[in-house]
């Protein structure tokens, strides 16, 4: 099974719409929503036989107040400001780093694993699907991405592809989204920020030696930048595999919980098919 991660330098470029559409068009695949900051694919899917697992992505410091003498050493050593004047842990700030545990002269502190979200695998009409959700404000999203990918793999039943909706940005969660994948599709739009974001995300793929392809969404909004993007890709050896026009019908479809594939937007469907063919052709060489 080959793994393809769809990523974008920033959010809102149409990455999830592209993944949702791909998962309708591509046969013989599983889909993993690894955009743990904004996991959205499940909104368009009807999930059956959902299996859920608690996820403990972090440790947090705890205080045994029977032993605590409120000397304040823990507060002084904590570099995250996670211990208040009254020696109470602020769980939104605690990194679980262990410094207070090491420093406490009373052995009154310890680390505890905390549940910070969950992962799940389910059956949908578009095949096996995995996603996750972190609790509000919880940390550790890169590890959660790894968990989602790990959870779906044992469900493989002869599928040829695993399509991963990756996290946006260039930080820990996107790194976890693309490590060990066979290819990356970077979705971008022709805005002033789009080009710099695209460069950063392509740098990242290159850094990890993963073949990267580019899809320019809403390409006709600004032809100057689209041309500049294409020129950049040619120079750097990245293939532009798809260009999708600005189309209010796509947003309209989404407002009705549908993809452009559901609404039968033929121009869009053709473009996605051609994009997928280019990627798979490259990978089969």
């Amino acid at each position: 099974m080959k793994q393809i991660a769809v990523i974008s330098g920033k959010g809102g470029t149409g990455k999830s719409t592209l993944v949702a559409s791909l998962s309708q068009i591509v046969n013989n695949k599983m889909t993993a929503d690894c955009d743990v900051d904004a996991p959205n694919l499940h909104l368009l899917l009807e999930e059956k036989d959902q299996q859920k697992w608690d996820y403990s992505g972090a440790k947090e410091a705890r205080i045994n107040y029977d032993l605590c003498i409120k000397c304040g050493i823990c507060k002084d050593v904590c570099r995250f400001g996670a211990i208040t004047e009254d020696i109470v842990i602020n769980n939104l700030k605690c990194e679980g780093c262990n410094a207070c545990v090491v420093a406490c002269p009373q052995d009154a502190m310890y680390l505890e694993e905390v549940n910070t979200g969950w992962t799940s695998v389910s059956t949908t009409e578009n095949g096996t699907f995995a996603h996750a959700l972190l609790d509000t404000g919880a940390e550790g999203s890169g590890k959660l991405v790894t968990e989602v990918r790990k959870k779906i793999v044992p469900f493989e039943n002869g599928e040829e592809w695993l399509i991963i909706d990756g996290s946006p940005g260039i930080g820990c969660s996107v790194i976890a989204s693309i490590t060990g994948t066979d290819a990356v599709i970077a979705v971008t739009e022709p805005t002033k920020s789009g080009l710099s974001d695209l460069k950063r995300v392509l740098d990242l793929a290159k850094h990890f030696s993963i073949p990267a392809f580019v899809c320019i969404n809403k390409f006709d909004l600004n032809m100057d930048i689209t041309n500049e993007m294409e020129k950049y890709c040619v120079e750097k050896g990245f293939m532009v595999v798809g260009k999708i026009p600005f189309d209010p019908l796509i947003v309209k479809a989404l407002q009705e919980y549908k993809t452009p594939v559901d609404t039968g937007d033929q121009e869009f469907i053709d473009e996605i098919n051609s994009l997928w063919n280019k990627v798979t052709e490259y990978l089969s060489q």
Binding site: G140, C172, I175, A176, F208, S209
Partner: peptide, 9 residues
Amino acid sequence: TVPSHSGMK
């Protein structure tokens, strides 16, 4: 070795 992917959280 493969390139570093250190830094996953």
